[in-house]
Write a protein that binds this DNA or RNA. Structure first.
Length: 907
RNA sequence: GCAGGGGUAGCGAAGCGGUCAAACGCGUAAGGCUUAGGACCUUAUGAUUCAGGUCUUCGAGGGUUCGAAUCCCUCCUCCUGCACCA
């Protein structure tokens, strides 16, 4: 009988659906397990890269189902934000690449026309396409709970409104201003993906210190306000163009180049009038912190494009300033440089660093970096810093800025960390958005709560935990709404639409009620109702109370979320928000319990992108390879490793499954008795159960596969080769193999299971249990010795280059075994060969040999009889392998035989 | 720049203080099967030796230890994220 794994896929999918196995019901007597994957954007066809993460989740869902859990694995779709609108726009503009991709994926011209008109049509088309692909690849998803986001889905929108009202009531939403990278031509924020140049560049805050000269203010922009105590003078570029600008009641002198920039950052900026900067040279300004008079000096190195074009000179802490000031002093100016920061072991850090890096402009730049870093990390303010003396540089920024504010000498501005060019060609600038809604992720007590959550969380792989905790440290407030795109409006300010990373943080709770809530009257769903359902709100809603009670029971049964599965790029954004929002809104008992982070599926080392994805769609993959075959790819990775798409590996699957099927059919005819090899195989079966259970549980699917699939396959082959022929053992093997592999290869294993006269579905059947009493390390070890000996014999035959007539294998004598076992027991106490020899007090060649290499001390006890029997029972196998007479003898006197290493005589 | 994670055979990887020349998979080679190819089966796949031996490797360099791919330090290099962008 032929076994075609592709033909049976649909059959079993239908069977599972018919039994509604993926649609779990509340069952208080059963442990539940709730697992999710972040919802996808249905803005194109699903490709193999998508499949990777979902398959990993599905394997877990099926694994837990077999272990007796009531598993909920729902899936919704994200319509919020730009991706879907973006695609619509591209179709509308007839973007060639997009149109081509869609056509390849089988989108008709009529559909394309609909997409151009309506983002919803596009999203719904691909939602259906995703769902179909999910089903075809065997995802055990509960589709009753499917929903979409945005105001297109009023019930979900209501839920999001509740969430945001809740955050606001908790004081976690504020309104404020915010610097963004901005395209002046398109008048929109410039995200990384909108740039042709300058990815990763961001606004950097500069402190502006106001130095006054009469009515004028010289605003020096600096990254290091703490050095103000050591300022000797100001620098301006004598060849630069400068202007006087009204800022409030003040008149600022700034470079002409910085006018535009500041216009976007200061709403109160007045008209600019050019000034002759040379007129100010040599005039004295007042240092607001020290009251000292500082002269304005010329310097060609001042870049009028950076900051305000006015620079504070701090020679003892800035190599460039040191260089300039030294020159002035040589020319007879009276300037008195002073140090305000001390760093241990660095007396003259600026001078030394200039010597080290050289006086070229490149060298001075490097020296500057070096000094900044050193002083920031290790510096302490000294007595020249007055009240700030003794404070570490790291901590002093805030207090000094406050002091400057008190003296009305503080302002701030932003500068890009590098050049940014928009796709439209315009050069990006920093703009301060004056009115913007924020989630206060910087809130310290909120972070503390989140920290507690993360410490209790199960994290796979474990390394991810420290990354989450570290992310908390730098996490700042996040803008949470914007003016355009799809989404749910902010309930109190509906001009603003909640952005995608913010409306996807606690929606897993919505899954628990998604299949029931839409039957209720939308109008009845007040915030009080959600409070009642999710937060145990005191106030029991009056209308429809039975229905609400039911929702509450569902939530309380299924929550918290047990596992969230996703790829590594979401870790420091989505996951951190997801965890923080749960910490803020839900009671501790409903905090998430686990997350899994995986890598990507790569092709020639690169992540599957939209363009590559177009050719590696699920539909194509299913046609070419089959569902279980694709699933095997997802099971290849451990931890956060990326997995390379390797279709060649799929051969290994078909071939081995074919072999298992063959055994399944022939094993009925077996009639043998139990032998040592049966005990060996039973022991190995138990090892496979133990190992693969542990690996699956920890999302180490690559290891699980090596054990339960490849490992078990190799063991049954060995068993049969060594003459194993017990029907019971083989059937035991088969049923274990089939069950262990079911989470990864659900279709094929159901088929194999049915062929073994088993009428019940594997889905829902019990996971094999590990029985330590059936393992036998001694026997396993002896079979390993047998195989090693076979290798040795082959090796020798190769060397002597002749077909042997007879092979005599000698098992070592009792005396040797005794010595060997004594060494083993000593070696369990100490690995020190000298000590072992001291403890054993005996002379023996064997002992010398065993102790020769302390790295290779024997670790496992051996039994003479067992070794003898294993070889005796393998005689037929040995004869077959070497095609000659083979004898097994016990050696009474010394020959080359050692315990665990029989002697070989080839004649 | 900051934070986190990696660098092991031709490739993907396992091992994370002691039977490690390195599981498992892929690839490659030889033989078998076949009209032939594919598939499949068997064997080999660090170097050297030619009676089961020996030597050398785990990004580079130092250190700790009887013993290090595994622990510590320095350096090189790759990947991920750094927010209004999903």
């Amino acid at each position: 009988m032929e076994f075609n794994s592709k033909d049976i896929t649909k059959k079993w999918q239908d069977e599972w659906r018919k039994e509604a196995i993926f649609e779990p019901k509340l069952n208080a007597s059963k442990k539940k397990f709730f697992i999710t994957v972040p919802f996808p954007y249905p803005s194109g066809s699903m490709h193999l890269g998508h499949m990777y993460t979902w398959t990993r989740a599905d394997i877990y869902a099926r694994f837990m189902r077999m272990r007796g859990y009531n598993v909920l694995f729902p899936q919704a779709f994200h319509f919020t934000g730009g991706p879907i609108m973006g695609m619509t726009q591209k179709v509308k503009e007839r973007d060639q690449k997009t149109i081509e991709t869609f056509r390849k994926q089988g989108v008709s011209e009529a559909d394309l026309n609909r997409f151009a008109e309506d983002p919803k049509a596009l999203a719904e088309y691909f939602t259906a396409s995703f769902k179909e692909d999910f089903d075809n690849i065997g995802m055990s998803i509960d589709w009753r709970r499917k929903f979409i986001t945005t105001s297109l889905s009023p019930y979900f929108s209501r839920f999001i409104s509740w969430q945001f009202n809740k955050l606001k009531a908790l004081g976690l939403i504020t309104e404020g201003k915010h610097p963004v990278v901005w395209c002046p031509k398109e008048a929109t924020p410039l995200g990384d993906h909108d740039r042709t140049e300058g990815e990763g560049e961001s606004p950097q805050k500069f402190t502006i210190i106001k130095f006054r000269y009469g009515d004028f203010v010289f605003p020096a922009a600096t990254l290091r306000p703490e050095t103000v105590f050591g300022a000797t003078n100001l620098w301006i570029n004598p060849d630069g163009e400068y202007s006087a600008v009204k800022v409030g009641a003040e008149r600022w002198i700034i470079s002409k180049d910085s006018e535009d920039k500041l216009t976007n950052q200061f709403s109160s900026l007045g008209k600019a009038a050019p000034v002759k900067i040379a007129d100010f040279l040599g005039k004295d300004v007042i240092n607001p912190m020290t009251g000292e008079k500082l002269p304005i000096e010329p310097a060609g190195f001042v870049d009028t494009k950076i900051g305000t074009g006015v620079v504070m000179s701090v020679p003892m802490h800035a190599p460039l300033d040191f260089y300039g000031v030294s020159k002035l002093i040589r020319d007879g100016h009276v300037l008195k440089p002073k140090k305000v920061i001390d760093v241990q072991d660095e007396k003259n850090i600026v001078e030394d660093s200039i010597k080290k890096f050289g006086e070229t402009s490149e060298g001075l730049k490097d020296a500057t970096k070096f000094v900044y870093k050193k002083e920031f990390n290790y510096g302490v303010m000294n007595s020249n810093a007055g009240a700030f003396s003794g404070i570490a540089v790291k901590e002093v920024d805030g207090p000094i800025c406050n002091a400057l504010k008190d003296k009305n000498s503080y302002a701030e501005m932003y500068e890009l960390t590098g050049k940014v060019i928009c796709r439209c060609g315009a050069r990006g600038i920093v703009k301060i958005l004056e009115k913007q809604w924020f989630i206060r992720y910087s809130d310290k007590s909120w972070k503390d709560k989140a920290r507690r959550l993360i410490e209790k969380l199960k994290v796979y792989p474990e390394e991810v935990r420290s990354q989450l905790l570290n992310t908390l440290d730098w996490l700042e407030d996040k803008a949470t709404a914007r003016k355009g795109g799809l989404g749910t409006p902010l309930p109190w300010d509906p001009e603003w639409i909640i952005e995608p990373l913010s409306d996807s943080t606690i929606y897993m709770a919505y899954y628990t009620i998604a299949n029931k809530i839409e039957k209720l009257d939308l109008k009845s769903l007040t915030d009080n109702v959600f409070d009642y359902i999710f937060l145990d709100g005191k106030e029991k809603p009056k209308n429809d109370s039975a229905a609400f009670e039911e929702l509450k029971r569902e939530f309380e049964y299924w929550y918290p979320l047990d596992m969230r599965v996703s790829a590594k790029e979401l870790l420091q954004n989505h996951f951190i928000f997801f965890l923080m929002n749960h910490a803020a809104i839900f009671e501790e008992k409903y905090w998430p319990r686990g997350i899994q982070i995986n890598g990507w599926l790569t092709v020639s080392g690169e992540k599957l992108s939209k363009s590559k994805g177009a050719t590696l769609t699920i539909k194509k993959g299913l046609e070419t390879y089959g569902a279980d075959q694709l699933r095997m790819v997802a099971a290849a990775g451990n931890g956060m490793d990326d997995v390379e798409w390797d279709p060649a590996a799929i051969n290994a699957f078909d071939q081995r499954i074919g072999f298992i099927f063959e055994i399944l059919q022939t094993c009925k005819n077996l009639k043998g008795d139990d032998k040592l090899i049966d005990r060996y195989l039973i022991s190995k079966i138990n090892r496979a159960i133990e190992e693969s259970t542990d690996s699956l549980e920890n999302f180490r699917y690559g290891s699980a596969l090596a054990s339960m699939f490849f490992g078990m396959y190799n063991e049954i082959k060995l068993y049969l080769e060594l003459g194993g022929d017990s029907k019971d053992t083989v059937q035991r093997f088969l049923s274990t193999f089939i069950k262990l592999n079911h989470p990864v290869f659900p279709h094929v294993t159901e088929e194999l299971n049915r062929h073994s006269q088993n009428e019940t579905l594997l889905e829902g059947s019990a996971w094999p249990s590990f029985n330590p009493d059936e393992t036998n390390a001694l026997i396993e070890n002896e079979f390993k010795i047998l195989l090693n000996t076979v290798d040795d014999i082959k090796n020798v035959i190769k060397i002597i280059k002749k077909q042997p007539e007879k092979i005599a294998i000698g098992i070592s004598n009792k005396e040797n075994f005794d010595i060997y076992n004594k060494v083993v027991s000593e070696a369990s106490k100490t690995k020190n060969a000298i000590e072992i020899r001291k403890n054993l007090r005996m002379n023996s060649k064997l002992l010398d040999k065993l102790l020769k290499n302390p790295n290779k001390l024997p670790e496992m006890q051996l039994e003479e009889d067992l070794e003898n029997n294993v070889f005796l029972q393998a005689v037929e196998y040995l004869k077959r392998t070497f095609k000659c007479e083979v004898t097994i003898e016990r050696r009474t006197k010394e020959d080359k035989s050692l315990p665990g290493k029989p002697s070989i005589n080839i004649l």
